[in-house]
Amino acid sequence: MSSVLLSLPEIFAAYKNWVSQNPQVVSDCETSAKWISYFIAGKINNSHVFTELVYCLSNLLVFFNDRIITNLRQLEVPGSGDTLKSWLTVVEYCEVLFELSAQKIWGNVGKWLVIIGVQVFKCLSRLILVYNYKESIIQTPPIPLLERGKLGKPNTNISSIRDVALAQMDSVAFTLKGSGRVIRRVEASPPVHTRTWKPLQMQEACDNEQTLEQALAGRQLIAETIYIVKPVAHLTSMVCFGSNSWKPWIVSLLLDLTSLQLYASCKGTKINSLTPKQKLQLSKRRVMLLMYLLRSPFYDKYSKDKVHALLMSLSRNVPFARLICKPLAQYLPFWQSNYFYMWST
């Protein structure tokens, strides 16, 4: 037994090396584990907790392996808020499991206490990231999935902090092949009144890249704050008006629209200009507005019958669609009651 324990660090080191060397193989294994949760949904004594446990563990496995690849290959420059972002990411992956477990053990009272505790923690953590660590637009989850398809072999990939700086420089400048002169890209140029017209150096390029991801200010800061406090505002309105009232649904929708409108009003200003990364995140938030069609009470009154009829129609008329659509129609009420909350985004 002692020999096995002594070899555990070596086993873990070998595992980390294997994950770093074979990201695509690891992705295939993770995908298989995630699909298991879909296939067993509602089939093991109707145990939704067990299904969610498998799904949660598969997400945590992906996140854990992403961190291994990122750290060993040094793909990111360490930041001061990384620890908080990691904990926040783990909580977001596990929050539905926490809720289902609390409901099974302590009933509805325990369920709502866990929901309130989780959402208050997420709200405070995001505010700390924005105001204290000067984070830009908060992603969901805060640490996104690693794009492993773009990773090459370890010996041909970024392997040092200096290489990271060089990679960042490529996004704001390019080098002439003949003279080796560094030329700033047009989209990365600062406003005319702040230009120095001096040759671009590597450090300046890196500083420029950091400027593009500068901390939020003005209307952007207000917009992000509104988006962050939206889940708590929605829960508060549910306490005041009840879970079946339209008012919490309307409050959440108005806060989302107000946040997006404030960001949109910054497009014409150079000081509050958005980076491509920020624009992509805002595009995702606009798409997520469609989720309001599947959220109660709108879903209960308008969408439920139409979605069920669509799934049944596909099941009858499209070859092999029955294998997917029929189980989906049977399990959709559970998913709708546990995943389509206002506070999940």
Rank of each mutant, 00 (worst) to 15 (best):
I40S: 01
L216K: 01
F39P: 00
W246N: 14
I228S: 04
M288C: 07
L6N: 11
N71M: 00
F50M: 14
G42Y: 05
D82V: 07
F39Q: 04
L260P: 07
S125M: 12
S265Y: 08
T140Q: 03
N17V: 10
N45T: 00
N46V: 05
V54I: 15
C206Q: 02
F298D: 07
K43E: 09
L310C: 10
I250F: 11
N71C: 02
D28Q: 12
G79V: 00
L221N: 07
N45L: 06
K104F: 05
C240S: 13
W106Q: 08
N244Y: 09
N45D: 12
A165V: 02
P191W: 14
S265C: 14
P154N: 10
N338K: 13
S7H: 15
S32D: 13
S303C: 13
I138G: 01
D207R: 07
T345Y: 03
T196W: 08
F50C: 08
H48F: 15
I161Y: 01
L200S: 03
C94Y: 03
E30W: 01
M1T: 09
L314E: 02
L146R: 00
M1R: 10
W35A: 11
G152C: 13
A217D: 13
K304W: 05
F174R: 03
I128P: 00
T70S: 11
E30N: 14
I69T: 06
S47V: 04
A41Y: 07
V229Y: 04
K326H: 02
R219Y: 15
K153C: 09
K304T: 03
P191N: 14
F63V: 03
